[in-house]
Simulated scan of single mutants.
Amino acid sequence: MSNAKVHPSSILSPEVELADDVEIGPYCLIQGKVKIGKGTFVEGHVTLGSRHGILEIGENCHFAPGAVIGGPPQDVSYKGEPTKLVIGNNNNFREFATVNIGTPKGGGVTKIGNNGLFMAYTHIGHDCQIADNVVIVNGVHLGGHCEIADNVTIGGVSALNQFTKVGRGAFIAGSSIVNKDILPFCRAQGNYATIRATNKIGLSRKGFPREEVANVHKAIRIIIMGSHTVEEGITRIKEECVMSPNIEYFIDFIRSSKRGIAVDRSPKGWQDDD
């Protein structure tokens, strides 16, 4: 039997499952099929779940007041199907963050990995796929079907169009509007956002050796600089760079892009001076 602590002012549906050490603060509404892992803390005035959807929350997560997690997708085609939101462990959702469940046409599942920080007023739309160690700063809005890879940081008051992808280790500066895919290991900025530089500081902080940072930097410059086609750039990368797992991932990301890469090949577009 669970020894969860639930404030008497909160309302929970009969289907809700609470693991050990879960704490539910005052004036919360938890409705529908909701499962919450052990050690998770839900502060006051939080809404979890919906009448029709399914919400699964991992261990040691935190939900600040005003968060609305697992609500129905903001999509006119949604007709109350039992789609899902799956959240991993150690995630922190700050004040008034919103995350929607998936849609049948988008795979049926919105997914968030582990160790994420979603600051105040962030919105994650239906069918988004968020990986591990992601930081999304205040006021960022993600349209439906976005894909955010590991170790990405998105600066405040930015917005991502639906179906955009952000590669592993990328950094998007604040107040950016993203309508094309952001390459892995890059810094991007602008309206519309384009690749500005290699995220050298971020890569170093994640433990990349100096030689691998230089290797990744060379690959990024090959794609960004010059007038060659993407396939010609990939050929050059294979010839001039060490084919590490990071470079292989970089090439795979480019080839899988459907919206196109956010590139500005004008002299002002690239900020590195080496």
Rank of each mutant, 00 (worst) to 15 (best):
T110A: 07
F96M: 15
I172S: 08
H145Y: 10
G143A: 12
A159T: 07
H126T: 00
I112F: 04
A149M: 12
N161S: 14
I124Y: 01
T110M: 05
G106H: 02
K105T: 15
V134P: 00
K111N: 07
G107A: 05
H126I: 02
G144C: 06
S176D: 11
I148A: 01
N100E: 06
C128Q: 08
G108L: 09
G167C: 08
V178I: 15
N114M: 05
F93M: 14
A170C: 12
A97D: 10
G139R: 02
R168H: 14
L160H: 06
K111I: 06
P104R: 08
I148T: 01
G139V: 01
V99G: 01
I154Q: 05
V178D: 06
G143K: 09
G106R: 00
G156C: 03
N161C: 12
L142K: 03
R168T: 14
I112Q: 03
I124D: 02
V152C: 05
G139L: 06
I112C: 04
T110K: 05
V137M: 12
G169M: 09
S158R: 03
F118K: 00
I130G: 01
F93R: 13
S175W: 11
N100G: 04
T110V: 07
I154T: 07
H141I: 15
L160I: 11
H141K: 15
V109Q: 12
F163T: 09
G139Y: 01
A131V: 06
T103P: 02
V178F: 12
V134S: 00
E95S: 09
Y121K: 03
P104F: 06
I172L: 15
F171I: 13
G169N: 11
V134Y: 06
S176R: 11
T98G: 09
V99C: 04
N133T: 10
I177N: 13
G139E: 06
G144Y: 04
N179F: 13
G116W: 02
